[in-house]
Structure formats: C-alpha cells, structure tokens
Design a protein around this nucleic acid. Sequence first.
DNA 1: CCCAATTGCTTAAACGATTAAGCCGAACGT
DNA 2: ACGTTCGGCTTAATCGTTTAAGCAATTGGG
Lengths: 328, 328
Amino acid sequence: MALVSYVLNGKEKESRVGQEIAGKIKQIASELGYQPNHLAKSLRSGKTHTIGLIIADISNPFFANIARVVEDEAKRHGYTVIIGSSDENAEKSRDLLNVLINRQVDGFIIVSAEDSQEQVQYLKDKKIPFVLLDRYFPAIQTDFVSTNHYKAAYNAGVHLVKNGYKRIGMIAYDSQLFHMQERIRGYVEALTDNHIPFQEHWLKRVRISAIEQGVKAAIDEMMASEQPVDALIFATYSLAINGLKYINELRLNVPGDLAIVSFGQAEAFDLYYCPITYLKQPIGLLGQTAVELLVKKLKEPQAEPSQILMEAELIIRASSKTKSLVNN
Amino acid sequence: MALVSYVLNGKEKESRVGQEIAGKIKQIASELGYQPNHLAKSLRSGKTHTIGLIIADISNPFFANIARVVEDEAKRHGYTVIIGSSDENAEKSRDLLNVLINRQVDGFIIVSAEDSQEQVQYLKDKKIPFVLLDRYFPAIQTDFVSTNHYKAAYNAGVHLVKNGYKRIGMIAYDSQLFHMQERIRGYVEALTDNHIPFQEHWLKRVRISAIEQGVKAAIDEMMASEQPVDALIFATYSLAINGLKYINELRLNVPGDLAIVSFGQAEAFDLYYCPITYLKQPIGLLGQTAVELLVKKLKEPQAEPSQILMEAELIIRASSKTKSLVNN
DNA sequence: CCCAATTGCTTAAACGATTAAGCCGAACGT
DNA sequence: ACGTTCGGCTTAATCGTTTAAGCAATTGGG
C-alpha cells in the first residue's frame, strides 16, 4: 500500500521505488479507475480542500453571482466550495459557521450579516483562516476585499448634483454594518462638498425585516414634504426593487418626478421603462481576489492581513439624466 | 474511547454502560466542547451526509432560488449541500459529477444540462442515488420532480387565444432536452386545439450559446413577415430578458403591438412598464420534494423510482390582457 | 457451592491514505 | 573479506470514530 501511495503522489524518486513496479502500479491504478478517497486523505492531513462561503443572501443576484465566481475560482485552485446563506441573520450565520467548522472546511469567505462581529472575532481568536468579502469591520484587523462603498456613494451623489438635482434623498438599510455607514457617509459628503446642505429628512433608514412597508413609508414621507426630493439613491438592490415597484404604483415619472441611482446591478434595471443608473461592483474581481487571499492565507497563516478596496463603476443611464434635458 | 462513542450516540442501554461513567462522559464532553469529527465518522460509515446539487445555471434566479430551497430543506434533514453550476454545459457537468463523487457525496440532485443523458445513465448503472429536478429524460427510468412543462405551455397558449390573440409565436431554446420539447408541444397543441393552425415560422429556436443575437434575429423575423405575430411566449426566463430588452429597443408596445407570456419569474417582470404575465413554477415544493425523494432513496435504495409532476401557475398581468381592451 | 447469565468496561480491528521506520540483499570501498 | 552505503520493498503507526469481541466481576438459579 505504501508503494502505491508513493507512486501515485509522484514520490517515486524520493522514496526509491523501482521503475518496474512503479509502472505496474500506475497501470493497474488506471485500469481499475482508482480514485483516492478524499475523506481518508483529509483525515490524515487535516486539510479538506474545502472552502466555506457564507453569504448574506443568495436570492440577491449580486451575491448569487459572487457565489458563482467564488466557486469557479476556488475550483481553479483545487478547492470545493460549500455555500451557505445567512439570510442577513446573525443566528443563522452562527449555525452555518458551526456546521462548516464541524465539516472541517479549511477556511471561510464571508459576507457578514448584521451583528456578526463577534463571530468574526471568534474566527480570528481561533485562528481559523477567513477572508471577509464586500463587508468588513474596521474595528477588527482582518483580511478583506471590498468595494469602496464610500467612494461609490460619493460618486453617485456628485453625479446627481452635477446633473442638476438639488434635493437628493437616500433610502438605506437601518444597519450598523460598516459598508452601509460608508454608503451613507459618501452620500452625505457628496452633498455637502457641493454646497447642498444635507437635510436629515432626506435620509431614510429601512429595517431589513420590513423592507416593503419601510420603503413605501420612506418614499411617501420624502414625496409628501413641501419640497419633495427630486432624486433618490437606493443603497441596495433590494431597496431599489421595492422602491421602483412602489414608484410605478404611484405613477411617478422617472426621472421627471424623481431621478434614480441605485447600488447593485440586475437585469431588472435594464428592463425598467427608464433604464436605471447604477453602481456596478467588480463582482468577478471581488470574488477572485477573495479566493486568492484565502488561498494565500491557507499557505502562510502568519502573513499580515491584506485589505483591498476596489472601485465601483457608475453606469449612467436615463434614470439620472441631466435635469434640464428631462422631458425633451 | 468505545464508551465515549456509545454514550454520545445514545447507545448506553444497548451497550450496558454504567450510569455513573455515562454521566461523567457527558459532563466532560460538554466541558471540553467536544465535537465529533465528521471526516472520521464518514470514513467509517461511508456516509458523508452531503448532497451534491448540480444546477444548470446559478445566475438564473429560478435556479438560484431552487438552490436556496434545497439547501434549507437538506439542512432540515441533516444534510449539507455542495452546489455546482454546470452552466448548461455537459462537460462541466461531468467534471462536477466526478469531483463530487470523489468527495463521496451520498447522492445527487441534478438539473440536467444538454447532452448529459449518458451521465444520468452512468449514475443509474453505478447505483449512485440521485433525483432529477425540473428536467428529466423520459427514456430513462429515474426518480424525478418536475413541473408539467407541457401543461404550463398549453395553459399559456390557451390564455393568449382566449384573450383574442391570433398569431401567437414562441421563442424557445434549440435544445433536445425533454422539458423544452414539452413546452413547445404544449404551445403548439394549445393553438391547434383552439382552431388556430400552427405556422412553422411562429416558432423560433435559439441556440443557448448565442442567445442575444438569436433572440434579436428571431424577433426580427417574426415581426418582419406580412402577418407579424401579435403575441409571444418566451420559453425561458433568459430568453424573456433578452427579448424584452430588444422589444424596448424596437419601441414595440406591450401588449399593444405584442402580448407577452414568459416562463420563469423574477423581479424584472414586475418592474417592466407593463407587468409580464408569467408561469410561476412551485419552486419551494420542487426543491423540498427533490430533497425528500433523495433522502427516501438514500434510506431505501431499492425502492421504485418516484416520478412527480407539479403544476405551474399562470400569473396573469397586463402584458397579455384581452386584446379588445388594449389601448384603453 | 458451582455453573451460567448478566453487567460493566477494555481491546482491537476497521475505514483509506500517508509516511517514518525497518529490513534485506547487493554493490562498493578499503 | 568485512563494514558501509544504497536501492527496493514491507511494516506499522497515525488521523477519529464505530462496533464486534473479549474479559472480569458480580449476581442468580438450582
């Protein structure tokens, strides 16, 4: 049995296996279609060559595509991926983490859910390799790959200002997650940097658990004031979908009554009667880089954490066109 | 060590373990936070409690949602899911199958790609448990859960006829897969059963590898004839997305110039300026049932295959409203 | 009082792969 | 000729768990 192992792992030289028997072993192995048993290998080596991918919401096309990229990239590196969706829920996230730790995944790629900071700290303390994707905690030193959410939102805000919009609102999640805070900060600073005093009532925070009603209420409030907003930034894809549906119901005209810019990307934005300007995150690069960082981390667990920010691209469409041109 | 195993597996009675030591073992186990090693368990038992899910295209929201349901349901049964996307490609599907077999998954749930019939036959010959989902091969006796694609398409066709449309086209994939044949058959029979002689040029088959150009060409041809179609059924979600984009470009009015019914479901259909009538497949039930069948199969490998067809629901929206009412 | 059954615990083999260590014979050097 | 080295192959321990089998000591019946 030992010889078989040596030969099939290409250690014939180091282990001084004879030419003759080496050949015979190879031949017989291929005749029998021998496949080594991953479990036994893993049990012995302590490496499963499996990555746990925990994402916040698989039904969101952004994350679904991230999952796809991560899976492909992991395969290129010889890893299998086990995907779990935490559904933006810290408890489910914890369960998933435990299941996957129990399954001895070699490491994690995580899109963190709300209130999951302690889980990240736990992984760090336990020295379980992981890379945060898209969302990270500035208070914890970790590897991460993320979009520069601040700058993306800032660019969106500036774009609307430059196109002549004066009262620019944002609907965001009522979330403590850093990426959401950054999006809000970018939006606010885009206004103030461009001589538009930010008004508190332009910013609405919607609870993720009551997104439909929340978005409706937010839009109602924004439009009901004496000076209704003339442009709106949706801080996430789901907010945009709900918001656009409601805007349709209200028979508001985009961009005539309300210009729109949204985070996220999806076919839905192309099909809207007025194609939606959106922030395109570099999905492929994000996913690939996350896998690369994790693989690196698995090779040298002691290395300094890599922290990578990438730029989102503002894809400009009709929903935010220059105000003076609207209704032409 | 043996005692530990007995106690922690609740076999204290059968294996006559003393009360005293049993209690001590439990206490110590919980103190140490003992977690059994899945790999060792699997190596010994030959069961990994892992299901391989191979889907045709993870970036399609229908399949993404299927994946989510399957994952949740599997977890309820104590199984972990490894997801792979074959991207509608038989070779990638074969690779995935091999990787997962090598990982000793207990069984598969498969949404088959084109030309993957032999792979299914292979699994059957090797007696590897599996359940086909959404797509199946009538020539091979297997477990499957699927929508009744024939009836769904038939209902869509009848609906359009009843609403006064006379020249009803379909854009389908150029695929030999049975579900696609069934959708086409349903569409054709809906017409002929309702005294509308089917015209060959109403049916266009688009190659999946060139979907964008294919759909454009198909629509061009359909609209260019002397008697252009007045209603169109998209046989899949992706066809619809591409088709609707092009219909927008052509500035065709839905349903005035062209009524639309599509398979699949997505936010995009709600956001379209004229909400799209679509066939809603019972995603939750399909996924749950697939897991249940597989779990059953894993328990009794010899049982007769279960073959389950479910009904799609036609969700009627403005895109197919009664022709006489259009433009009111 | 002795053999049998029962109870409570220990040993060890097995799953499949890896790998250090051991063993034997041939070649080689002095 | 004798010790050393090397090539070529075999043994066995290990990973963590399960489970059949074995072994004492205690209890029970006749």
